[in-house]
Design a protein around this nucleic acid. Structure first.
Lengths: 223, 223
DNA sequence: TTTTGTGAACTAGTTCACAGCT
DNA sequence: AGCTGTGAACTAGTTCACAAAA
């Protein structure tokens, strides 16, 4: 076992695309593990989940030599590695900004809890909402108290679900409190300093891009 | 005016990335128009919204010669062209599948209405929900009635917000009813026949990819 | 034999840089 | 002068194909 093979401390700049695929691989492995599969080859994984075998191998090989030639990958072991690579071996703490329809729905989204994300709370500027809680029991705090709260209840990822006009100021605030990752549901681009990651979930852009393909009639079974 | 310059009927396979950017350009032009700006150069547009000038020109030039050398683009005119290219000059009809927290929140999302999307209704399998409506007044129908309804109330885009286990069967159903565009919020990959577009909004993948960058500490101000 | 890990080849996407129009 | 539209150069991402390991 030659062990670590790339980039010493694992730094070489991994693309967004690769990061997303690692998460997809983990989901596939969870499914295989649940059905009791012990080992899986990149080819089998690729065929079952419509991926490319070489790409799976390359993505994984980037982080170490996890496979066994002639055999494939041990499902449980690879799962463990992926969880560690994705930072899911420790608790990831999430704050949701904006306790409107979308923010409340996200707070109760069962998928978050599943992989060990902890929803610390909802944060809103409307005094009337503060003190209430979501159907699932996530409490709503005053966004003005966030600065104080974050010291005792640190947050790893801020989910932004406020109206477009408020998004930039909310992000400026959370970034100034040390948050370095943002999942943004508001339309438009957020400006953040280097060292902060933003992932945009732009509903309008997605819908309009589907509309575009419908309009030109060259839709194609691409995901 | 040499008119149409590329690919006869405008077919040459435009990438997902380009389609998304067209939507972003439209949003930028709306903002400029609202503040009364009459013309804008690709350079000014790029600087103001942190895009690349050459890319804007290339994306637009693909669909025609909309610019005027020495001047730039007429904001209103380019807006009109983009709305037409994105298929927003006609009504885009949307059905939302799954009347849970997320589906209900999406049904009332103000951004959808703004660019002319019409929410035809929510569709759910739970009889208890059928006949109810969202806070914003979107009615909930029985998903079993969709096949009949779609004949009188056709749907262009299906938004899938059902639990993971139900997602594939819902998509099979809507595709068999002629829907050719799907915005999927459920985790995992959907299988659809060629000719159907799927756009995935995978919350878990987004969160885990943020977690990944936090874990390796090489976050970077990339959107 | 099977299947990994990986250089090499290829494909897609972005940016540069400039001829040519206004 | 200013700015578009676009070929050429470059960069990023994917897939191929095979030597080496089990």
């Amino acid at each position: 076992m030659p062990g670590r093979n790339k980039g010493k401390f694992g730094n070489d700049q991994v693309s967004e695309l690769t990061a997303g695929r690692l998460s997809v691989y983990l989901r596939c492995l969870n499914a295989l593990d649940d059905e009791g599969t012990k080992t899986v080859s990149s080819k089998a994984l690729a065929e079952q989940f419509h991926l490319n075998a070489a790409q799976i191998r390359k993505d994984l090989a980037y982080f170490g030599e996890f496979g066994v030639r002639g055999v494939g990958y041990y499902v449980k072991e690879l799962k463990r590695h992926l969880r560690q690579i994705l930072g899911l071996d420790r608790t990831v703490r999430v704050g949701i900004f904006g306790a409107g329809n979308l923010g409340m729905a996200l707070a109760d989204y069962p998928g978050f809890r599943r992989e060990g994300f902890v929803i610390v709370g909802l944060f809103d500027a409307a005094k009337a909402k503060v003190g209430q809680q979501s159907r699932g029991g996530v409490r709503i705090f005053d966004v003005a108290d966030f600065k104080k709260m974050v010291k005792k209840e640190p947050i790893d990822i801020a989910v932004v679900a406020v109206p477009a006009a408020a998004a930039q100021s909310v992000v400026d605030e959370v970034v100034s409190c040390g948050v370095r990752a943002v999942l943004n549901f508001s339309p438009g681009t957020l400006k953040v300093p280097a060292g902060v990651r933003v992932k945009n979930m732009d509903l309008t852009v997605s819908m309009e891009s589907l509309s575009f393909f419908l309009a030109r009639g060259d839709a194609d079974g691409r995901a």
